[in-house]
């Protein structure tokens, strides 16, 4: 399979710079730990926020880290799309007889993100153990679909960012700040925010569909409707569709302006 080849090439390429990869991995784990520490400090002072304690927040943090790092690892091509255009690499992709999305996926694979994926999973497990969930088959299924939905939503955001950078050529902070900011602010239950903001992050950019809602179902949050929370990841995953449509329209525009 072609993707396998891309994967091996990226492996070989990053092993040429083992030391650098190690450093980047190290610094990323370092950042994660600092961020966990910040959350921990807040809970040290205030103990709860809404109905959430430290470990519920830690679970959400674990989920976000995992899905965000998986997406960054495999879909970095969208995230760095402005670079792809500026360097002329995108022109190169357009003259290959392979689907353009497939090639963008293949254009960047960042091995150094692996450290953060592992950390995210470890943090999720620690949190789940500490919360003491009564496991059922449904809860396991919801947890799995949560991770999948998370990857799709973050990927969708990356794709929108890529689409926008076709118009602006600059790598906008905009998307970075949305995705990074989402990361930082979605460790906490979404109902503490203004109701319009909460709606925005449920129905427009469905962040809640892969953190607050399914986690509420798993930990048994009484403030929510269980079955709705359980299917929320499935609905949230649909976010990717409008993103792809937007991107494909943007490519058409690229082909007619050739920036």
């Amino acid at each position: 399979m072609l993707y396998n080849k891309y994967f091996k090439m990226h492996m070989k390429s990053s092993f040429e710079y083992r030391f650098n990869m190690f450093l980047i991995s190290f610094s990323q784990v370092f950042i994660c730990i600092a961020e966990i520490l910040a959350v921990w400090l807040l809970f040290q002072r205030f103990e709860t926020v809404g109905s959430w304690g430290f470990y519920e927040s830690l679970l959400m943090l674990g989920i976000i880290y995992t899905v965000y790092s998986i997406t960054e690892c495999f879909a970095r091509g969208y995230d760095e799309f402005a670079k792809l255009i500026k360097s002329g690499e995108f022109d190169r992709l357009l003259i290959r007889p392979v689907n353009i999305h497939y090639q963008i996926f293949g254009s960047r694979i960042e091995m150094s993100k692996a450290s953060r994926i592992i950390l995210g999973i470890v943090v999720s497990i620690i949190a789940l153990v500490q919360i003491g969930v009564d496991w059922t088959v449904w809860k396991v299924l919801v947890l799995i679909s949560t991770y999948l939905c998370g990857c799709l939503v973050i990927l969708g955001l990356f794709i929108i960012g890529a689409g926008i950078s076709i118009y602006t050529i600059e790598n906008l902070e905009f998307v970075n700040i949305i995705t990074n900011g989402c990361k930082e602010l979605s460790y906490y239950p979404i109902n503490i925010y203004n109701k319009w903001l909460a709606r925005f992050f449920t129905f427009i950019i469905p962040l809640a569909c892969f953190n607050y809602l399914p986690v509420s179902f798993i930990v048994g949050n009484p403030a929510t409707i269980p079955w709705l929370c359980a299917i929320s990841p499935l609905l949230g995953g649909l976010f990717i569709i409008p993103c792809l449509i937007f991107f494909n329209l943007s490519i058409k525009r690229y082909q007619s302006t050739g920036t």
């Binding site: 080849k5 090439m9 390429s13 040429e16 710079y17 022109d91 003259i95 007889p97």
Partner: peptide, 29 residues
């Protein structure tokens, strides 16, 4: 996709090959 199967392009200033992987691997790709 159909069309580009029959063309080859060399941009003198840019490369289509991978920077830090042996050439033969780029060819295999």
């Amino acid at each position: 996709k159909e069309y580009v199967k029959n063309i080859g392009v060399v941009f003198g200033q840019r490369s289509q090959l991978w920077w830090d992987v042996p050439i033969i691997d780029s060819f295999e790709l």
